[in-house]
Design a protein around this nucleic acid. Structure first.
Lengths: 215, 215
DNA sequence: ACCCCTATCTATAAACG
DNA sequence: TCGTTTATAGATAGGGG
């Protein structure tokens, strides 16, 4: 029983530190859950630590993927908007892309790649990006591997949470962890991987677009 | 004073929901801080919500960048290991790459790119990178835009936290938020952006490799 | 290692300025 | 809309099984 006021210091005893970690992690998850419920905040967590053998996902790997997808999508749209405000360097078709969410970037990149493959001159002389940040070709696989891996070949438009979810559901459970890793990694390698060791922990929260899903 | 037992439900009153959000977010950050200190867990958070105008980073944007960098690095190395176990599809040089941390992916990707499209690679010389990994500067920007943006041209090896930190410190404060967005986004666009709107919130925690940094 | 217990500390809802 | 207060619900360290 807490006779001692919590000393805010690193717990040197290994077993008690691990016990504390587990307890407090559980408490933190509960706090997240409450915040999520009470305030309509969409929340998720990725945790890896030396105290657990497996990377953990809260509230579930599926939810993590959904929240990260939404996060990426919103940021991408925000960025796209900013770019458009600065200069309309892309044709009207870009506006259409905006509604698609995540996949648009893939398509955009593929388009660029084909342009590059056709002509090196086009690659160098046609700055698709401002600030001379020219984009390279064979990079489409490089740039968005997780999306490419996850999405069906038909590449449906993404405008709603449901589609993201259904796409996520299509992932082989054995490859899900890999999927989230890719999302964080910018990696282009799609080698299957069932377990990811490490010693970190990560959380994500987000606001529910539809707050009445559950309450 | 908590006369009422907390009703685990969405708070319909806007102002009280916002107040609750702020209070509980603060409490959550404190819990994170304690967990970090007591258990040697490296932790950070990204928060965006309708209740705050700006995306928030905890404990600081710098720390978020560091933790995410370390997270990426560890995952990448882990993946590399797994790939090597499954098939030695790369030469011995890959082992060397393992020690490099984040940048290795850039180099590896560039290698593949050069194999696929030598003409592009030949065109975009100016080998800024060691190991003859004839990296087209553009492609590496695509692969790891945040890192490429951040790293000095000399591209030092990454094996320690300190290097990551120093690299991160070089970022223009106005571009930091953009940097973290890129890290999450797999995007290849480096258009500057100082404010990112949105309605989400995100946290990351990780184990301190060096637990005695501060306690 | 794990769960349960409980005294004690901590977080926080509501009230108030 | 904020900060401050305060009583109460909630979290949890240390212990025992």
């Amino acid at each position: 029983m807490i006779r001692t006021k919590v000393k805010l210091a690193y717990i040197t005893n290994d077993s008690s530190r691990k016990a504390t970690y587990k307890k407090r992690k559980k408490g933190l998850m509960k706090k997240m859950s409450e915040l999520s419920t009470c305030c309509g905040i969409d929340a998720c967590a990725i945790m890896y630590s030396p105290y657990e053998s497996q990377t953990e996902f809260w509230p579930s790997l599926l939810r993590v993927e959904q929240v990260l997808s939404k996060f990426k999508m919103i940021l991408e749209m925000e960025k796209r908007k900013n770019m458009m405000n600065q200069e309309c360097f892309l044709s009207q078709r870009t506006i259409k892309f905006e509604l698609w969410g995540i996949n648009d970037l893939n398509l955009l990149l593929d388009e660029k790649i084909s342009n590059v493959d056709k002509s090196i001159d086009a690659f160098t002389m046609t700055p698709l990006y401002p600030q001379g940040a020219s984009s390279s070709s064979s990079s489409s696989m490089v740039a968005l591997p997780p999306i490419t891996m996850v999405m069906p070949k038909a590449m449906p438009k993404i405008g709603t949470e449901e589609i993201v979810q259904s796409d996520v559901n299509n992932i082989d459970p054995m490859n899900r962890q890999q999927w989230i890793m890719e999302l964080m990694n910018n990696s282009n390698n799609s080698s299957p991987q069932t377990h990811v060791g490490g010693n970190k922990m990560m959380f994500q929260f987000g606001h529910n677009i539809n707050p009445n899903n559950g309450h």
